[in-house]
Design a protein around this nucleic acid. Structure first.
Lengths: 262, 262
DNA sequence: CCATTTTATCCGGCAGGCGGATAGATTATG
DNA sequence: CATAATCTATCCGCCTGCCGGATAAAATGG
């Protein structure tokens, strides 16, 4: 094996497990497509994950879903998660104050990934989203914010990198880039996404994201999600933006201070 | 490939990732030992996990730890976790009442696995433990409880299965079995473990576990952990057992009822 | 009812994955 | 401080574990 070249079947099984987690459950054909492997290979990978107990078949259906055992693959990270330790109390308070769910997301590779959320602590949500859930960059408030606050070179590199993603339509990418007003986002200190599409209830929610800084550097996006039929985007901005900025500033302050040190 | 036989390298990488999560960070040699693969094989697996971004090397140290990205492997399970949905509000209330951390654990294979815990919500703990952390069955309060409430045949099968675990000393297993008073645990409705050894602060804590039922069937163990130097086991039982039983009964009631349905 | 898609399995082929051996670096011990 | 033990890193010949196109049966949708 070449130095640094991954073991193919391991990478493929990771892709399969991520896809199953992302969608909640998938059929074998869907797993094959999502992880870009031939059907017989997907069958073997699924058999291995079943054998390890990480996934199970839904009763009476040819669909596969994660089991509780997947948490043995991820629990080791959490006890040194400074971002979440600082943010968690604040976003719990914020959800109590505004009612809507709040999430914290960072950019990982070419997507945004949730680091924490309060979806499970409010009734004002259609679905619950947990740390690990991912979102596209150009179609989410947090992604646009992250892109806007990136260094110019990093943004160009990232847009170039995204154009290489096999599932991305280049025409779409060009129009999404054209619609991204970096200057305006940086000046206003927020980004929005009308009718979120890339979640489990497409078109039913919209969102507003504000930045969290760590020693002046952009660290994460804090996003409030709300129902499209509850209020218009402009009304949401008028009503909530000041509050969101205030809470994000408090989190930034905690992150930059010595609060987390022993 | 035989039907049902796993892909070897996938199973090995899962073992390695679990071990890294379990200990927080490991050296290459430790990974090799913990996942029972030859050193060069451990190197290749680690390289693959690094390439996938699931682990990283600790700065200036030849030790590897999980990254936030591991959460993409596990988040899909949580949104249909009925046990935790029912238990979470109760154990949060319980930790507020007694101060000590509470955890919910189930048996998975030959070990106990945390499904939820309030360690991160109290100062009365040395370390934080998250869903996915595992414990041995015969050396934890929750494990003894689970074993005691198992059907006789299941218990025999499980004890036999544990004697096949490569890392278990048979002399130790025999003496642990001899010390397990199944009748007493079932009669008293709790199990204890003095000086917990299999956690990150061996010997500094003890624990009491009580059962959670679902329609009369044993479903999970609810455990309170406390400092050895704060009180003796007997004193802890006198002071806390009634409260623990009351909360566990409430969780059992919620689980058995229609509380979780839309 | 028929066309299409999905599920499931087979089996020949080969290169991906393997691990013992080796050398250098680091750590522990006397 | 010297030496032994342990750990890290890599090599390379070997071979079987993993592969995927082909095929048939089952399931689904119009």
């Amino acid at each position: 094996m070449e130095k640094g070249v991954p073991i193919r079947s391991i990478s493929r099984s990771i892709a399969a497990l991520k896809a199953i987690n992302e969608k909640g459950s998938l059929s074998m054909m869907e797993i094959s497509r999502a992880s870009r492997v031939p059907y017989p290979t997907a069958c073997r990978i699924v058999q291995t994950l079943l054998y390890e107990g990480l996934i199970e078949q839904e009763p009476s259906r040819k669909r596969y879903r994660a089991t509780a055992l997947v948490q043995t693959l991820s629990h080791g990270f959490q006890h040194r998660d400074k971002l979440v330790s600082c943010a968690r109390p604040h976003i719990m308070d914020l959800t109590r104050e505004v009612g809507w769910p709040i999430s914290i997301a960072i950019r990982v590779g070419r997507r945004m990934m949730l680091r924490d959320s309060t979806h499970s602590s409010t009734a004002l949500t259609f679905e619950n989203y947990y740390p690990g859930f991912t979102l596209p960059i150009l179609d989410s408030a947090s992604g646009k914010l992250s892109l806007a606050f990136a260094a110019d070179e990093e943004r160009e590199m990232l847009l170039g990198w995204m154009s290489e993603m096999p599932e991305v339509d280049l025409d779409y990418l060009r129009s999404a880039q054209a619609g991204l007003d970096v200057e305006k986002i940086r000046r206003d200190g927020y980004a929005v996404q009308g009718r979120n599409h890339y979640n489990r209830t497409p078109g039913k929610t919209s969102s507003i994201a504000v930045p969290i800084f760590n020693d002046g550097e952009f660290e994460a996006a804090m996003t409030m999600v709300f129902f499209v039929n509850a209020m218009k985007l402009d009304a949401a901005l008028d009503r909530y933006l000041p509050t969101l900025k205030r809470y994000a500033a408090a989190i930034s302050s905690d992150l930059s201070g010595d609060g987390g040190r022993a």
